[in-house]
Simulated scan of single mutants.
Amino acid sequence: MKVSIITPMYNSALYIDETIQSVLSQTLTDWEMIIVDNNSSDESCMIVESYASDDSRIKLIRNDRNGGAAEARNKGMDIALGDYIAFLDSDDFWYPTFLEDMYSFSSKNNYSFSYASYQIAINSLSNIKKEFRVPAMATYESMLKVCVISCLTAFIHRELIADTRMEGKINEDYFFWLSLLKKTPQAYGHQSALAIYRLRQNSASRNKLKVVYQKWLGFRTRERISFWKSVYYFSHYFWHGLKKYAFSLKKH
C-alpha cells in the first residue's frame, strides 16, 4: 500500500463528509484512511460508518474517551500499513491530485519528509482568504524560527517515523516535525497549493495564548534551548504568526 491517511475526529459531523469526499476523489487510489474518533457525541461516526460500509479502504476506530488529536494520530500510526503517512484533520480538504503529486514528488526524489503549499479558508471551504506558499526546504534550525509544515500536507515515509510519536495536546504536530528533522537533514516543499486548511472559531488551534505559551515551554523543556536562544527563535515565530493570521486574513 502506498499511503496511510490518518484522521483524528471529534464532533465533526458538519465537516467530515467533505473531508472523506476529498479523499475518495484522489487520483491516486492505493490508500487506506484510518479515522480515529475521540468519543464524539454527534453523528460523526454514523457518517463515517456509512462510507466504511461501502469502501474497505476507510476504517473507523472508536475511542471511549477524548485523548486529543495527538493520541488519535498515534493510534493511527501504530496500525498504518502504507509506505507513506499523511495526516488529514476531519474538517480539512485535499485537492484531487494531492496524494498523486506528493507520492510522485517524494518517491521519485527519494524524499522521506515532504510537505506542500495550501490555502486557508474561514469556516466554509469556498471562503478562501489566503494561499500559504511554502519554502522549498525546511531544516530543524529553520523550523525553530517559523513552522512552514502544516499537518494536512505533511507526507512522511513510515520508516522515518518508526517509533517517533506525537506528545501533548498543543503544538504536538510542530514538535513532532522537529523530532523527525533530528533524524533527517531536511524536509522538502512542493510549491503547488494542494489542500485547504479550514479555520474555525471553536477549533483547538485557535486558542492562541495557550499555543504561544506551549511553544515557549517546548523550546525550554523539550528542545532544551537556552533562554536567550529561545527568545530569539520565539520572536521569529511570533512575528511570522502575526503575518500569517492577524495581518493576512480579513475579518469574518
Rank of each mutant, 00 (worst) to 15 (best):
A204E: 08
I20V: 12
S40R: 03
E32P: 01
F176G: 04
K145T: 12
S192K: 14
A80K: 04
V212E: 10
I149Y: 06
D78S: 12
S142T: 14
S226K: 02
Y232D: 00
G218Y: 00
M102W: 06
S205W: 11
K2I: 08
F98I: 13
A70N: 04
R200K: 08
R222M: 07
R133S: 12
F98W: 12
F227W: 10
L14D: 15
I47N: 01
L209V: 00
Q119C: 13
K244P: 00
G76A: 03
R158M: 10
F105R: 04
G218N: 01
Y115C: 08
V36A: 06
D78T: 10
S12L: 09
S104H: 13
D42C: 05
F176M: 10
R158K: 09
R62L: 14
E172W: 03
M33S: 08
E32K: 01
S25I: 01
Y95I: 09
S179I: 04
W239M: 13
T29D: 14
I149L: 14
P185F: 11
F234R: 02
L181K: 02
I196T: 04
L152Q: 14
I79K: 01
Y188V: 15
N110C: 13
R62S: 12
S124K: 11
R206Y: 04
T27W: 00
I47M: 06
R198W: 03
M33A: 11
Y197R: 05
T27P: 08
N123K: 10
Y111C: 08
E167D: 15
K215L: 11
S25W: 10
K130D: 12
